[in-house]
Each structure stands twice: as structure tokens, then as C-alpha cells.
């Protein structure tokens, strides 16, 4: 079971400490109509991540969390400031450094689970059969064995999200950008998936930005938590989460230090 994925180890720019650097980023959207005002989604936002660090970004809805991820992912460019991933600032290079997992699983209904995960490899030019073959060991490692041939419509929400995450992993990029990965799941499945993701990241370490609107989820997953303000989004507080990863909710919820972190984050959010 020692099938490692390729990309992260062999990094040309491994000397760079800052895997992701967001400096003074401003992002405005033009007005939708003549009467409407242009919207400033992010304003003078700064963030930096070291290699293999997990940063959880938490903020109220509409604070530009998704915009932030798309900026890092190279799917958008900032109006001011700079964004670098893996030391590269060009959008094209950022796209090569990052694997982006959107809010919804977006699995293709005409592909089985294995082919959906293998899509990431096919986009890199790997032939279909070879891509499937290379995805199989991951299904075994991440609790999806025997579901290879299942259609997305036959999978539960949590299972679909696992397949979407494996697709993200198979892209073979050093940086993972997860946009509210469990936002659509029920509370119980969600807790299970948080534990699953925690252990998956322990197994396959990556530099990760995970966006969420759930403070507990942020504290369970992140080495650090960045709290964003309402629109226009900027970082109002950064919290170091000292607990070793992977973490387990049932062990932490009773811990006074954990509760104190949660209280500080909630206060920063104005709750």
C-alpha cells in the first residue's frame, strides 16, 4: 500500500519557504447593471503559507472566500497586489501549482467513480486506461474500495465528496485549495468526513487552503485559522492551532484550550 503520488516530492522550487504568498490583494467585480455599485470582494488581503501547512479560512458568507481560492488557483487575477503559488505569480503557473476542489463535487454522471477521479490524470494527457489503473490504489487507501464502478448517482454525499477529493489529489499538485468541501453534507456525515480528510492529509501531506464557514471545522483541520471580515474581505485575525494533526473531534470538544480558540474565533467573527 505504499503507492505515493508523484508531484509534491520533486519540487523545483522547494527552497522557497512561502508556498503561497498573498500580498495586499484587492479584487473588485464590475457593477452588474448601471444602477448597481461595483463590488469589492477582497481588500488589502495578506496571507502566507509554509510548505505542508494547512490554513483554514473562515468567514461570513459573501466575504470573498471563494474569490480568494480562485485567485490562488489562477482562475482569476487580482486588481491590485500579488498572488504567488510555489513562487510563481503568473496565473498559468499558479494553475499548474494548485489543485482546486469546488464546493460541489461536480462528478460527471456518465463516468463511474474511478473514471471521475481519473479525469484529473486524463486532463494531463494520461491515456484513459492508464489513468484508471493509476487511480485504483487510491480508492483502496481512502476507503472507496469496491466503489470503483459505482455511478455518482449511486453514491452517498460523503462518498461523492471523497471521489471529488481523490480527483483533486490525482491532479498531483503540491497545493490543494478546498472550497467548503463538506458544506452540503449533513452534520454527522460532515464530522466523519472531517476526520477522513484529516487522516488523508496526514497520509498525503500537502500545502492546503481550506475555506469553510464552520469555526469548529476550521479548528479541526487547520494548523492556522484565518478569520475574514464581512465584505470587503480582509484578515481580521489569525489563530495558531497548537494541537497535532490529525485531530479527533471527540477528543477536542471537551478541551478548554480548544474551547478558548473557538471562542476567540467566534468573537472575531462578531458572534
Amino acid at each position: 500500500m505504499a503507492t505515493r503520488l508523484e508531484a509534491p516530492a520533486e519540487e523545483p522550487l522547494s527552497s522557497i519557504r512561502e508556498k503561497i504568498a498573498v500580498r495586499g490583494v484587492v479584487r473588485r467585480y464590475p457593477a452588474r447593471s448601471r444602477r448597481a455599485e461595483p463590488v469589492t470582494a477582497l481588500d488589502a488581503l495578506d496571507l502566507a503559507l509554509a510548505e505542508r501547512e494547512v490554513l483554514a479560512v473562515v468567514g461570513p458568507s459573501g466575504c470573498g472566500k471563494s474569490t480568494l481560492l480562485e485567485l490562488i488557483a489562477g482562475l482569476q487575477d487580482p486588481d491590485a497586489g500579488s498572488v504567488a503559488a510555489g513562487g510563481q505569480t503568473a496565473a498559468r503557473e499558479r494553475r499548474r501549482a494548485c489543485a482546486y476542489m469546488p464546493q460541489r463535487d461536480l462528478l460527471l454522471p456518465w463516468r463511474d467513480a474511478l473514471a471521475n477521479a481519473a479525469l484529473a490524470l486524463e486532463c494531463e494527457g494520461v491515456p484513459r486506461a492508464e489513468a484508471r489503473r493509476r487511480a485504483v490504489p487510491l480508492f483502496e487507501r481512502f476507503g472507496l474500495a469496491r466503489f470503483e464502478r459505482a455511478r455518482p448517482s449511486e453514491l452517498s454525499g460523503g462518498m461523492r465528496q471523497r471521489v471529488a477529493f481523490l480527483r483533486t489529489l490525482l491532479a498531483g499538485r503540491p497545493v490543494l485549495l478546498l472550497d467548503e468541501p463538506f458544506g452540503a453534507l449533513d452534520a454527522i456525515t460532515r464530522t466523519q468526513m472531517q476526520e477522513w480528510l484529516g487522516s488523508a492529509l496526514a497520509d498525503e501531506p500537502r500545502t492546503v487552503v481550506v475555506v469553510t464557514h464552520d469555526v469548529q471545522e476550521a479548528l479541526l483541520l487547520g494548523d492556522r485559522v484565518a478569520v475574514l471580515s464581512p465584505r470587503p474581505g480582509r484578515v481580521v485575525m489569525e489563530l495558531e492551532v497548537g494541537f497535532p494533526r490529525p485531530r479527533h473531534r471527540r477528543e477536542l470538544v471537551g478541551d478548554p484550550a480548544f474551547a478558548a480558540l473557538e471562542a476567540r474565533a467566534l468573537e472575531a467573527l462578531g458572534c
Binding site: G74, A99, L106, L108, E122, E124, A171
Partner: peptide, 29 residues
Amino acid sequence: VEPELLKLMRSLGASRVATLWKVELPAAL
């Protein structure tokens, strides 16, 4: 095809032809 899915394909590094062949044409079937 949803814009979100096209965004995903772009971030996966898919070419225009790959997006057409693997996503848009099956969706149009």
C-alpha cells in the same frame, strides 16, 4: 455545462479539445 465545471476543467489543465470531448459533448448527448 455549468460554469463551475468548466472552471474545474481549466484548473485541471484540460485543453479546449479535452473539455469538449470529455465534458461538453457527453453533456450534450
